[in-house]
Simulated assay, not measured.
Amino acid sequence: MFDTAKSQYFISLPEALNTINPDLVDEVEYENDWDFEYRNFSEILEAEHDLEQKIWYNRHKVREASIKKGKIKLIDREQFNIKKSQHTIIKDIWEGALASAKKVEETYGAENLSFDDFEWGMINGKLSALRWVIGDEWDNLDT
């Protein structure tokens, strides 16, 4: 029954597939041998924290530039008015923000906190995705 030149006999499926299409076997082996390891929760939280700090720092630097240009004014607590809060910052809160910015610079290095528009998009997208993974809503970029 199997004595013609076109007939082949195999007792294992991988051997038969390898004879017919070796690339297919390599592809199947790759898919089956690939080990996917999930990140542990503490690793996710650490990455989320790093991204949050970098985004906060960027927002802080934007606010700092607005203060230097006079678009935002530093005020005393007694002067605070919720209706004008978009254009003012209470002095002692700003002092705390400056101290926090210094800590972020010490942690990451100021030279590692400057990104182009594409990189900022990636950083914000990563933060949104990590927050979603840990149970938050999509697009939560609060810092």
Rank of each mutant, 00 (worst) to 15 (best):
I44K: 08
S42I: 09
I123G: 03
F118I: 14
K54Q: 15
K68Y: 01
Q8K: 01
L98W: 01
E48Q: 13
D3K: 11
V62R: 15
K126V: 05
E46N: 14
K91D: 03
I11D: 12
L45I: 13
F41Y: 14
L13H: 05
D139N: 15
P14M: 03
E95H: 09
W94P: 00
N21A: 11
R59Y: 10
G125T: 10
S66A: 06
I134T: 15
D116C: 09
N40K: 12
I20H: 05
I20W: 10
F2N: 09
E29H: 09
D142I: 06
I134F: 06
E105V: 02
N124I: 07
R39Q: 12
R77T: 12
A129Y: 13
T88P: 00
K103R: 11
K91R: 12
K126Y: 08
T88S: 10
T4V: 07
W138R: 13
V62F: 13
Y38Q: 13
L98P: 01
I90H: 07
R77K: 15
T88F: 06
K6W: 02
L141C: 06
I20D: 06
I134E: 09
S85E: 02
Y108M: 03
Q86M: 08
E78D: 13
I134M: 12
L24I: 04
E137F: 14
I89V: 15
M122R: 15
I89G: 02
L13A: 10
D117G: 09
E137T: 14
R39I: 12
D139P: 01
E52T: 14
I90Y: 04
H87I: 05
I123A: 09
K6L: 03
Y30W: 07
E31A: 14
L74H: 02
E95F: 08
G70K: 03
L45K: 15
A65C: 03
L24R: 05
D139R: 12
Y30Q: 12
N112T: 05
S7L: 03
F10V: 07
I44M: 10
D136R: 14
D136C: 10
E106M: 06
S100G: 09
Q53R: 12
W138C: 10
N81D: 15
G125M: 11
I67F: 02
T143S: 06
Y30S: 10
K54R: 15
W56R: 12
G96C: 03
N32S: 11
D35Y: 08
E37W: 04
W56D: 08
L98Q: 15
H49V: 05
R131S: 05
E95I: 08
K126Q: 14
K126H: 10
N124D: 06
I72L: 01
E27R: 11
A99C: 03
N21L: 07
Y30C: 07
G125L: 11
F36H: 04
I67K: 01
D35A: 10
D23G: 08
V25T: 05
D3Q: 11
D23A: 14
K71E: 03
Y30F: 12
D35G: 02
S12M: 08
F115S: 06
N112W: 01
Q8E: 06
N32Y: 12
V133K: 09
D142Y: 11
D26V: 07
Y108I: 04
I82M: 11
M1F: 05
V133Q: 09
E119R: 14
S85I: 03
S66M: 05
W56A: 10
E111G: 01
R59A: 13
G96Q: 08
K103A: 08
K68G: 00
N18Y: 00
I72A: 00
V62Y: 08
V28W: 07
L13I: 14
K61I: 06
